[in-house]
Design a protein around this nucleic acid. Structure first.
Lengths: 210, 210, 210, 210
DNA sequence: CATGAATGAGCTTTCATTCAT
DNA sequence: AATGAATGAAAGCTCATTCAT
């Protein structure tokens, strides 16, 4: 039991190190050597837990997807108000400027679909789930009478995810002309327009101009 | 003179081969060997024209940005009608499923911002220009009385570019649940909503529901 | 006592697995990991019984030699008639096309003499014993008046062993132009010629021409 | 031209080094590193000429087969007398105790048939050619009236090759109880018996007892 | 008695890069 | 202006081996 736990811990540490590496250097920059060094083990140990680089990369991708989505889902379900759900989703979907290896690694992985069917599946599945969680939030707002969507909620949900993706990529990439705050305001502006709900992110952002 | 021209041609061929390679395999997948083979020269020749791999990659990025933007600008300026401008921009900004190395390479390069300041500059500059050309098209439509924007045109222009980026990434990545036609319709739907102009891409797509 | 027995059993299972592995992949292909897997234990266990790879390989060699020779000796002594002895020896010395890890492993090991003195000893000893058992069979035939050797029986015995070795190697190697039946006939043809005894392997192979 | 020659020379030097390595350590012991060191180049250079280890090994095998057979064929055709042909073949087919990397590598390779179809082909082809050249020599002796074979010449030829193989393996393996001279005498003894020609290797080995 | 997590040396292979020609 | 032979650093991966439990 103790041993089992140690083993799981070791695997987890490796995974965390690999995730950080992907966030920093991208999937192509993932090096067994770096992961090993970061986890204070040898490359042999990395191979003991993950057969090869591709396996490790898949594991990173799967873990990142799962954790990311679980966190957002929990967030969305813990909030009742539709507007607040949307606000929370927008904020949690954008990477913070520095760090946040989880989100950063996912954005890096996003460009990786073409390389392998498996990564494509993972990416597609995550995307669909993101759309779904946004759609649920929109429906909640509609039911609560605060949203009056000017297009099908599915379309709006897709757009929200797309904007989130696009602006997130800019942030992760270090685009200095677009801050996280800008991105939040841009996406919120779209949400307000699409739901005809004027106060999404307007209670505390009153004066934010674009 | 003739020699000079030959030299330029050779450089151009190398650049084209490199651009195709980046479109196919991504910036990290760019290999001198592949470029040389595709251009029917040896690796030595590639190094004769481009000092090292990084130089070549920068040249590819710059060339792709320039050509891409020049083509879109020409397109936009050659069309008078604001609605048609927008339509043309949306279509020309999305990669076609197969081929189109120019657009594909740019999407691949987009994930590359973090790696180097130079790539970041290039990306940022291109992005700003894209936003500008969309903004011009929107203003044209406003002036022509066909658009009644529900938000600042700059915000709408940013959103259009963001959506284009996000959906383009899906297409380049081979996401099989989102076709080019879907992307065009999604972005057009946003444009209609934001400009309150019902007939953007609606003359031939009459019944398309999303 | 029971424990002792279990231990011996475990060691034997390991040895059997290693022998099969050598037969399949050759001595250089012997991997601790494979042996462990085949015996349903871990690599640690293999090392518990055999200090290192070289030790295991020596044990395999010794066991294979011993078992092989013991079997042939028993066969030869259980038969009275000189001709039948020879026939039985020829048949039992050639590997069967598929399987028979014991003989296969010995042929694989044969190429291994140069690597180590110990393997050389083992090989030499086995060879001498093989020659001896053939010589005894020949002498028996002479005593029974059925063989009239045209050369010293030791020379003939050596040739028989050599032919057996050479053709066995072909069979183990999967030479598709030489079957086990061909090899038996070729060696028997030599035996008939050398002993001037026409009916070695001729009672059931009557018409076989070569 | 000069360059071409240099390149061929380099390739040849590498091949020679690889052949020696195979002769010494066997096919499984062939290491790119060793070959590079022996040829005073880096491992990169070895890979420049031979894509990978397997390619190099195939090249070694092919070269060894060709050279070996060419040498024997030339020898056999340069001699008119059937008896002398046979004698020359026997002597040239057996490795000399020390060195002779060509023959040694072939014996090492012989155990390698199972590993790959290509090696099997090579081995089979060489074997068939060896049998053929012996058969031709036997026929020559028959035509010259010096051989009176007691079995089909093809059978005898096969036996001669088999004996050569088997004894050669002993010599290469360093079996100290069987010298090259012993092997020559043993094979000659068989040849005398099979051809009823008493003076094969008997003019200078008069008293050799076994 | 046996495990299996962890090691690390050693190998092949890849690839941008150099330089004499 | 271009070549291509040769390099060598750096990477992934394999595997026998060790040792605390």
């Amino acid at each position: 039991m103790a041993r089992r736990k140690n083993q799981e811990e070791a695997r987890g540490a490796l995974l965390a190190a690999a995730l950080a590496a992907v966030g920093t250097s991208g999937p192509d920059g993932l090096q067994i050597r770096d992961v090993a060094r970061a986890a204070n083990v040898t490359t042999g140990t990395v191979h003991y837990y993950f057969d090869d680089r591709a396996t490790l990369l898949r594991a990173v991708h799967a873990a990142a997807s799962d954790r990311f989505f679980a966190a957002r889902l929990e967030l969305a379900t813990s909030i009742a108000d539709g507007r607040e759900k949307i606000e929370a989703l927008i904020e949690s979907g954008l990477p913070s400027a520095g760090g946040d290896p989880l989100v950063a690694s996912l954005y890096r992985l996003a460009a990786y679909r073409a390389s392998s069917a498996e990564h494509g599946e993972l990416l597609g599945a995550l995307h669909d789930k993101q759309v779904a969680v946004y759609a649920v939030a929109l429906e909640a707002g509609v039911a609560q009478g605060v949203f009056a969507p000017i297009a099908p909620t599915l379309t709006i949900a897709r757009h929200l995810v797309a904007l989130e993706d696009a602006y997130g990529l800019h942030i992760v990439g270090g685009n200095r002309t677009l801050t996280r705050a800008d991105a939040i305001e841009l996406i919120s502006a779209y949400a307000r327009m699409a739901t005809r709900c004027a106060d999404i992110h307007r209670r505390d952002h009153e004066g934010a101009a674009l």
